[in-house]
Write a protein that binds this DNA or RNA. Structure first.
Lengths: 119, 119
DNA sequence: CCAAATATCTTGCTATGCAATACATAATAT
DNA sequence: ATATTATGTATTGCATAGCAAGATATTTGG
């Protein structure tokens, strides 16, 4: 089936676009529920929840949010093991998360209205 | 409150990012429930549902989806009024919509898991 | 000492949202 | 007739995020 292949290719392209911004919300939400975490640990937790995120995506995201003031990182060198950079929400980050959640929920509600009875 | 302003500015920047891809899903969903519609009419319907979309956003989106094969447009000149370009879902577009819905729902479910009990 | 594991960071590419602007035609007012 | 407003669609340019691929650094095990 040719039609199917075309559709799948389109959706694959769409996938990475549709994650823009959404991953910010996921990362902030994760930190809100875990209090603090580091890169690889977050990757594993997100995957556990069903969301595969690569390093090339997550690390720039964490760097940006730190630069913007939503995250407060702190290096920690455990007695045994590799040094880790732990992130936690800053006060600004908590405000940002709350606003993002509101907006996201509004958008989902709008989508449901748009879908109308067609589901 | 300074902290609040910083957060609002960040969320404003985030907003347009978070709509990438999401608007594709909304447009396809709208056409699925309406069978056919034209640009300004879609803008109005989306706004009615709580989603403000500008022309500079919607028209390129419709042009792209047409180019990709998800939409089948057809010009219509009514007896009275301005010529309109009506869009409807192509067979490919219906497959794309179904796949997008699945993925979107999976992502929302993942987010809810990530949020855990913190809401 | 070398290889594998753990952990973080960088570069380059592609693609979308959106403000601003432009263009065209139909209806209405003067 | 003619100007103005309303309706309708399209384009340009910029900023920004996701991601594959690869680089870097440290710790541990053979």
């Amino acid at each position: 089936m040719d039609e199917m292949d075309a559709a799948m290719a389109l959706v694959e392209k769409w996938r990475s676009q549709s994650r823009k911004g959404f991953l910010d919300l996921c990362a902030l939400s994760l930190l809100a529920s875990r209090d603090e975490s580091y890169g690889l640990d977050m990757m594993e937790a997100l995957a556990q929840a069903g969301l595969e995120v690569s390093e090339g995506t997550l690390y720039p995201l964490l760097a940006r949010m730190t630069r913007e003031g939503s995250l407060s990182p702190s290096w920690t060198t455990p007695e045994t093991g590799h040094p880790r950079k732990y992130y936690r929400l800053s006060p600004t980050g908590q405000l940002v998360l709350a606003a993002m959640r509101e907006e996201f929920d509004r958008n989902v509600a709008a989508l449901r209205r748009i879908e109308g009875g067609t589901r």
